[in-house]
Nucleic acid binder design. Structure first.
Lengths: 109, 109
DNA sequence: GCGCTGTTTCGACATGCATCGATACAGTGA
DNA sequence: TCACTGTATCGATGCATGTCGAAACAGCGC
């Protein structure tokens, strides 16, 4: 488990100057995490859910098996986009707040 | 060559409502294109280059072979992020203007 | 036409990854 | 403790993809 630590405010806008190798590595890892349709839907389900968090049971209906959902949620966690917390029987996922803004910033001129 | 046509203004912010299957497909394709470190550096090199365009010869020094550079530029073209134009001996790449804003919009609450 | 340089395509290879069923783990309630 | 539900991990499989060298293509200058 390599788990690149994204260090949320990472990189300047792509239009400002060429990214360094390390910057590209960190930023690409985040984009890659959103580069799968199933993961993107899972992320969107969490991000748009009431209260800013969602139980796995709320978002498991994306057309793939339960182990696959779990696998994708793990990937999103490892990329630093989501956090998870177990409360009793259920596990809740949340969007890491600064990450969306950081990624948007990289794409903004 | 599937070449999903991105139809630039694609999708609402991820936080607004869950993406549909089709929206996720289109948007994930763009994120996926930026999800490789080499491609992200190439894209950044084009996006930050003087005049908004760059010759392949200007950006080929990213640590991989020249055919690999060409392969990645093709992927970025197919994803709708770059356009290319041959002018005499050299081929110039440009960022498709609206795409950056569209992707940033998806990530903005 | 011929050679030369810049760029793309081709074919092959190794690695990565999305997916699944089976299984293990965690917590609840009886 | 035992059964039950929700979630994560394991192991296997098939496909996607990043990479390269070799070869093809495109323009230019002679």
């Amino acid at each position: 488990m390599p788990v690149l630590r994204p260090a949320v405010p990472c990189c300047p806008p792509l239009t400002q100057r060429p990214l360094t190798v390390l910057e590209a590595e960190l930023t690409a890892a985040m984009f890659k995490a959103l580069g799968d349709p199933v993961r993107l839907r899972l992320f969107s389900l969490v991000a748009s859910h009431d209260g800013g968090e969602a139980c796995v049971c709320d978002i498991s209906d994306v057309g793939v098996s339960q182990p696959t959902v779990s696998h994708h949620l793990k990937k999103l966690r490892e990329a630093g986009l989501l956090t998870s917390e177990r409360r009793g029987t259920w596990v809740y996922y949340r969007v890491v707040p600064a990450v969306l803004a950081a990624m948007a910033g990289v794409l903004t001129a």
